[in-house]
Amino acid sequence: MGRRKTPEERADEERRYALASAAHTDEDFEPFFTDTNQAIRNAAAMNPDASAAVLDRFASDRFWSVRIAVAEHPRTDRATLLRMLEADPRRRGVVHHETRKRLEREGVRFGDDGMPIPEA
């Protein structure tokens, strides 16, 4: 079992979580790209005010839950979604599958290899 957080540490996390949820501008999101708490980064990625540029940066987060939030966010642009797909079938996971579902809902067709069929 890890060490318990102090009341001050818990209060600081609550403050950062509230700021991540209330961010409006790209500059407001800047501290959250490197926040040590995955839940806070996830809250920032789910923020309805996150721009396509902010979401593109969160698409590279090391935790899958943050990347899934990006895949599900309505402001994520097509180029970011396509970049989130994994070409190697052995490396595909929940992020690839959620991204594929989103793209299929938007009319993108996928081939037998699990990747989008290039539009002619």
Rank of each mutant, 00 (worst) to 15 (best):
N47K: 03
F33G: 05
D61K: 04
A39V: 05
T76P: 01
A79Q: 05
R41T: 05
T36D: 14
H73N: 01
D61I: 11
D28A: 03
Q38D: 13
I68R: 09
A71H: 07
A52K: 11
D61S: 08
T80K: 03
P48L: 03
L55I: 15
P48W: 08
T34E: 02
R75Y: 04
D28V: 01
D56C: 14
T80P: 01
D61H: 01
D49V: 05
A71N: 11
E30Y: 04
V70Y: 00
F29L: 02
A52F: 07
R41D: 04
W64Y: 09
A52M: 11
V54N: 00
R62P: 08
D28Q: 03
F63I: 14
N47R: 10
V70F: 01
N37M: 09
A39G: 14
P48F: 06
Q38A: 12
R62A: 12
A43G: 11
R57N: 10
R57V: 14
L55P: 06
P48N: 03
P48E: 03
D61F: 02
F63K: 14
L81C: 04
R78K: 14
N42P: 08
D35C: 13
S65A: 09
N37A: 10
N42A: 05
D35G: 14
A44F: 08
D77H: 12
E72Y: 00
D49L: 04
L81K: 06
A45G: 12
F33D: 08
T76D: 02
F32K: 15
